[in-house]
Design a protein around this nucleic acid. Structure first.
Lengths: 204, 204
DNA sequence: ACGATTGTTTACTATTTAGTAAACTACAAG
DNA sequence: CTTGTAGTTTACTAAATAGTAAACAATCGT
């Protein structure tokens, strides 16, 4: 009942785009409103602050894009090491796309925002932590499956997953700073090498 | 000739401290001046912008702290794999110190600032790129020495160094976001594991 | 079609911030 | 001890920004 609107969704998308391309700190509420084509009064009707918007934007992005992607790429119907390889290939491809569009490798918005705001904004920090933790679990599960199948040596899968994730996010960060996809191109083989993967040539 | 001053140095130090603890975007020139105990007029006497100060601060930090540390830890008089292990242990220790002081793991200022500003400020991006490149060379050289001594399998040392560096910076980023040293604690062994290091037990 | 409700717009205030100009001060060298 | 130079301080402007209040507009359910 009452008036209908997609302003909230437009704000969520505009915010994520701007923050991803620039940074959390440098993006103003006015800029988000302008990009979304929404007046500031409406912004404050839906969100109480930039921080609250960012939290909502990160969560919305996971729910509407991220989750499906990870579910597909880490499908149990794919061999465990192929999941990891395919995932990193996908990362390379999407970052290449972004570089074409924006003239810049953009990296991972979640990690970037998290690193930028973690000492300043606890609600963002917690949301980022939550989303990153979800992602690490996909790695962990694939590693465990690989261990069960003998393609990765045994040992603490949770630790290996954290490690792999650090390699992943570190590579994305480097790629952003250097604006160079090279760090991501070598990621599939580096990742499998890091896991001590046996016979790392299923599909190629 | 003329009046003497250490205001410039005080500004450089205050800037790095604030940016490290918070972020580049959120730190204002006024805040830097206040922390340094220097008036804004003096700031603009020495620097033309926050960006210029940040570039100078990163370079000064490398010249006055960073370089000596890396030179010592990567001394050729230490076995190559021990250099890497000792370096990561040192990283853990210093981040633990920072956490005690600030209540927060702070990670690497250079990488954080780089990731935050790379799409916005080319001069900072280039300076960060330069400093990170210097650091990667220490890894590369240690890896090459390890390969020559047979403690790391042969293969593109530059690529391995990049990879190791991504693992390193990714771990620091995670540690900052989660405010958890665990990511750094496992780094020495993870790093050697990643390199496929043989007999990874020289000192412990 | 009407009224409660949901969302929009405008116009505003108060604050923070970058940046400047010019008077002022300390000091080193001659 | 005096003079030029290097550095400092103050007080200011202009712009950007967050946040608010209240009038206004659309539309859903009845």
């Amino acid at each position: 009942m009452g008036r209908t609107s997609n302003a909230k969704e437009k704000l969520l998308e505009a915010a994520l785009d701007l923050i991803w391309e620039r940074s959390y700190g440098v993006v103003t509420i006015d800029a988000i409103c302008e990009k979304a084509g929404v007046k500031k009064g409406s912004f404050y009707y839906f969100f109480e602050s930039k921080s609250a918007l960012a939290v909502a934007a990160l969560e919305a992005d996971w729910n509407e894009c991220g989750k499906q992607k990870w579910d597909t790429l880490f499908s149990a119907s794919v061999a465990p090491l192929d999941r990891i390889r395919d995932f990193f290939k996908h990362v390379y491809d999407s970052q290449a796309e972004l570089q074409k569009e924006h003239g810049q490798v953009l990296g991972c918005p979640c990690f970037s925002v998290g690193s930028e705001t973690s000492t300043q904004d606890e609600t963002i920090r917690l949301k980022v932590q939550e989303i990153l933790q979800r992602q690490i679990r996909y790695f962990e599960s694939a590693i465990r499956d690989a261990q069960a199948g003998g393609s990765v040596p045994p040992g603490d899968a949770a630790a290996k997953a954290k490690c792999l994730f650090a390699l992943f996010e570190g590579s994305l960060g480097q790629a952003r700073i250097q604006n160079d996809l090279e760090f991501l191109r070598i990621l599939p083989e580096s990742a499998l090498g890091m896991l001590g993967a046996a016979a790392a040539h299923t599909s190629s």
